[in-house]
């Protein structure tokens, strides 16, 4: 226990808030899609920190599941991009 977990978690939360606001305001539709990236990394980071700070191991499982879902989303996107190439009309 270093005592740093809670401050760092709060710092990340502030980061996430600013980033979400900026991304949601983004000039183009593509900027707004950046929100999807933010939750996969910053959100997971906050969860693991809180798990350690609050002594609730279950939050690590939550973080793991979110990361897993985000990974599946990413892979599905990438695969679709690949298949789109083969069927340009799809």
């Amino acid at each position: 226990m270093t005592g740093l977990e809670m401050p760092v978690a709060l710092f990340l939360l502030a980061n996430l808030l600013v980033a979400l606001l900026v991304a949601a305001h983004g000039p183009t539709a593509a900027d707004r899609m950046l929100v999807a990236l933010l939750f996969g990394t910053t959100g997971v980071g906050i969860l693991v920190l809180l798990a350690r700070a609050g002594g609730r191991g279950a939050l690590v499982d939550v973080a793991l599941v979110i990361a897993l879902l985000a990974a599946i989303t990413g892979i599905a996107f990438a695969r679709r991009a690949w298949h789109d190439k083969e069927h340009p009309d799809a």
């Binding site: 950046l34 999807a36 996969g40 985000a70 990974a71 989303t73 990413g74 996107f77």
Partner: peptide, 10 residues
């Protein structure tokens, strides 16, 4: 994996 896939898609 999530970031790589999603950032390419975006």
């Amino acid at each position: 994996a999530a970031s790589a896939g999603v950032s390419y898609a975006i």
